[in-house]
Amino acid sequence: MTLLPLIFDGVLGFTLLWLAWQLLGSPDLFRAIVLFIAFGLLMALIWVRLDAPDVALAEAAIGAGLTGALLLAALARLGPPSETASLDNQGDRASVAEGGGLPFRRWLVALHLVLACGLGYAVMSLPSAAPGLSDAVANSLALSGVSNPVTAVLLNFRAYDTLLEMGVLLLALLAVWSLGSTPDAPPDDQPVGGVLALLARLLTPLLLLVAGYLLWVGGRAPGGAFQAGSVLGAAGVLLVLAGWRLGRRFAQLPLRIMLVAGLVLFMAVGLFVMLVGGDFLTYPHASAGGLILLIEAAATLSIGMILAALFLGIRPDSRADQ
């Protein structure tokens, strides 16, 4: 009976590679995006098989779900594919036919072979039982204020990384907003269908509940700010699709406060513990659990808002500017 999981894992792994190959080779962008979403879902399954449910949740929600939605939204804004994509492809084919691309490709293959050999050598020469850091994490888990080792690493032992990640996310949104006047997705003449509005109305409360649950459970079990935030973001995407927009009253300052709340609170807590007498982001053991939950709550809100705002693509108040 030990053969069955092996076969299952083998099929999963090979399907993943095949999907990756198909999606990279697809000239049709829409097809490539759909394959990318399928790739993300399969990847999440593989993380589950590798006993990494935290990563699986994040991959399914962010990698497959929200990135897929972002890519589709970008594709919708590119306009009809016949003008841009196919012309480029023809140009590529023409240059290959002239032989212009061929030596380049040979060099590329050679370079990749070297890289593959190097990687293979590196993997083969690894010590068979790498100790890793899991023992160190397990030993000091009691000091972290949470009992889920992943959350302990992300929000306590390596909180610095997570802080920077929040910053990167915010910067990405700033970059998108700075690009400015990209038109809203080509306006559908049809009013948003009753089915979509109904779906959004039914699912939004449920998504809020799930996000709250993921945030709360993150201290003990798989979950946490990024997973909860991406569920919030999904709710935002659904509302945007259903035609709902933030009221002008909230689109200015309140929205911006929400967007930066996670990063600001994270840094504030980090600086505050320095005042109390520790190092940056080294929480006192007694209040670590509470501080982590506080940071994660603000981070969840900010991540959700940032992801939804990324999907919307333009500054929600830009209509007021015009």
Binding site: Q190, G193, V195, L196, L198, L199, L202, L203, L206
Partner: peptide, 20 residues
């Protein structure tokens, strides 16, 4: 139940978009 809800709605949306 969630898959019922999502599947039915998405099928309707895809069909409506195709008809448009």
């Amino acid at each position: 139940l969630l898959v019922l809800l999502a599947g039915g709605s998405v099928a309707h949306l895809v069909a409506a978009a195709a008809r448009r």
